[in-house]
């Protein structure tokens, strides 16, 4: 590797990492929080078989999973202003990423709820507990443990999906890299560099996943 390339990588590293820390990470954290909230709500509605709301949830999942994330970003950021709804780039990205991942996570959470043996619920009833008490103390904690690995899948893919927000003018890591490439015409080293930073973020999350699974595994295999 020429000294010239090394200098370029060193110069650009912080210029890419800082938007990563200031944009990519907050975007991920906010969007994933929304996704988690939506997913638990949507999963509980389906699990409890609430009429009407259940159909709305199915429609939401069907629509979101059936359309590309990039198209959803464009509809919200470039499309909605034509009907008078203007949303800034960052909140638009948070909203779309959250709604998008929420649909996938909802299916994860629902299947985890359904995986809890029905005897657990019956035992709760026989102890005199009501629906909410059983869900809170028994079913949700068990479902959550089952859901952790696939939820981390979603979280890690969300970190990478934030790069799509560059398309709607959010200056996150990828957009920052594109700008440097625009000035220097050194596409190969710079795109590899940003890929490497994404890899660092994902690796940290994999470690976090392992730690969480260990913490949640205290009561042994099922």
């Amino acid at each position: 590797m020429s000294g010239d390339t090394i200098g370029l990588l060193a110069d650009s590293f912080m210029k890419i990492l800082i938007p990563g820390l200031k944009m990519t990470i907050p975007l991920t954290v906010l969007s994933f929080s929304i996704a988690l909230f939506i997913s638990v709500l949507v999963a509980l509605i389906q699990f409890a078989d609430v009429p009407v709301l259940r159909q709305i949830c199915r429609f939401y999942i069907w629509f979101v999973r059936g359309t590309p994330l990039l198209v959803q970003l464009y509809v919200v950021f470039f499309g909605l202003p034509s009907v008078g709804i203007m949303i800034d780039a960052f909140p638009a990205a948070v909203l779309v990423l959250g709604l998008n991942e929420g649909a996938y996570c909802a299916e994860t959470v629902r299947s985890s709820l359904e995986a809890v043996p029905s005897g657990q619920f019956e035992a709760g009833l026989c102890c005199g507990m009501n629906y909410a008490q059983i869900m809170w103390h028994v079913v949700l904690p068990q479902a959550f443990r089952t859901a952790v690995p696939p939820l981390f899948n979603s979280l890690i893919s969300m970190v990478k999906n934030t790069s799509l927000a560059a398309n709607i003018t959010v200056v996150e890591m990828f957009m920052a890299t594109q700008r440097i490439v625009g000035r220097t015409y050194r596409a190969m080293p710079l795109y590899l560099e940003v890929a490497f930073i994404y890899l660092i973020f994902s690796t940290a999350l994999s470690w976090l996943q392992r730690w969480c699974e260990k913490r949640l595994n205290h009561y042994g295999g099922v």
Binding site: G119, Q120, A123, L125, C126, V138, Q142, Y219, V222
Partner: peptide, 17 residues
């Protein structure tokens, strides 16, 4: 139910407790 106890064939202990 609060006046009755129930013991299941497969125990059904709360696995997370």
């Amino acid at each position: 139910r609060k006046k009755c106890g129930f013991v299941f064939q497969n125990y059904n202990l709360f696995l997370n407790k």
